[in-house]
């Protein structure tokens, strides 16, 4: 019996808006009965894309406007990301029923072929316990997923060159120091893996076809999908969609800023009654700590030394020894802890 087809679509380089709406239309098509599909696309120009649930104020819109960077919201999860022509994006759209009901299992099934593709082109990638595709401890592939109607769309990227500076600049930061910290963490924990992109495309196609028992077959959009692209173009350019005004979602907590760099790695800043704490949280422990409180009277460095390297809960306890400013910083840290749960 012939195997069912994995439709292969290579959209090439397209304008930023289309680099999103094309594959969202494919997801709708697969939901309506089009074959399982793997697609590839590059944006001709840089832009910023926000995950479905995230607040628009997580993006530095003024900076994006100054640099001429469009901002779009996708239907899959994750945070604000910077995309450009040095990244090859792939999308796998499958009928919902072909995946396990349990999301962590579904996600693992969708991630493993991508790891295989990286390895096939000589990148020593692996899937770590937190579900990131990594080389060492650096993330090499951003990913996200969503159920779109009766299909699941999984997206990832091959990063041939990464503009770490731009990636940190587009994220709204409460202070220049916070932005610097974020930039350092992105440089440390997100890595490009230059390789033969054509070979990666072939390897990814083969890996997903094999994983789902499908036969790759180059195809094209259906007419319904082409109509969906046009409709989605309008939706994605509608400020109501972009800004997330169609839903009640998390509101801004101005006392805590946190940005996830990769699973288990955060840049955080918290302010409470004049006390400010800026740090990296790596696997639950504080690093690169900087504190500020007018009442510390020159003991900020001692406070920073006292809590660097400690898990958040223990660091809170150690802060209390520094009197009222320490207690304020402990409360600020407690707020950080609650937001990272």
């Amino acid at each position: 019996m012939p195997e069912a087809a994995l439709r292969v679509l290579d959209f090439g380089s397209v304008r930023p808006l289309r680099s999103q709406t094309l594959w969202h239309a494919v997801a709708r098509g697969v939901s309506a009965g089009a074959p399982p599909t793997i697609s590839f696309v590059r944006p001709t120009d840089p832009y910023v894309c926000l995950g479905y649930h995230r607040r628009i104020d997580e993006v530095d819109l003024d900076l994006c406007a100054r640099r001429g960077l469009p901002v779009y919201r996708r239907m899959v999860g994750g945070g604000p990301v910077y995309l450009d022509n040095d990244q090859l994006f792939f999308q796998v759209c499958l009928p919902l029923a072909s995946l396990p009901a349990r999301r962590d299992k579904a996600l693992r099934l969708l991630l493993e072929p991508a790891v295989e593709a990286f390895r096939a082109v000589g990148v020593d990638a692996s899937l770590d316990r937190s579900g990131e595709i990594v080389v060492g401890d650096a993330k090499v592939c951003g990913h996200g997923a969503a159920q779109i109607d009766e299909a699941v769309a999984f997206v990832g990227n091959l990063i041939e060159h990464f503009d770490h500076e731009a990636a940190s600049d587009v994220v709204q930061s409460p202070s220049p120091e916070a932005r610097d910290l974020l930039a350092r963490l992105i440089r440390r924990y997100v890595r490009a893996t230059p390789c033969d992109a054509d070979a990666f495309r072939e390897a990814a196609t083969d890996a997903y076809a094999s994983a789902f028992g499908l036969e790759p077959s180059v195809g094209s959009l259906t007419s319904a999908e082409e109509e969906a692209v046009a409709e989605l173009d309008g939706k994605f350019e509608d400020p109501r969609w972009r800004d997330g005004l169609d839903r009640a979602a998390q509101t801004t907590d101005h006392s805590v800023w946190r940005v996830k760099v990769r699973a288990g790695v955060w840049a955080v800043e918290a302010e409470l009654a004049g006390s400010r704490l800026l740090a990296a949280v790596v696997d639950g422990r504080l690093e690169a700590v900087s504190v500020d409180d007018a009442e510390l009277n020159g003991s900020a460095a001692a406070v920073e030394r006292a809590i660097a390297g400690w898990p958040l809960g223990e660091a809170e306890a150690r802060l209390v020894a520094f009197g009222p400013p320490g207690q304020r910083l402990a409360e600020a840290l407690a707020r950080v802890g609650r937001r990272l749960e």
Partner: peptide, 12 residues
């Protein structure tokens, strides 16, 4: 009527 996200996976 709404959506949930876990591990960057959005569902209705």
């Amino acid at each position: 009527f709404g959506s949930l996200e876990a591990e960057k996976f959005v569902g209705p």
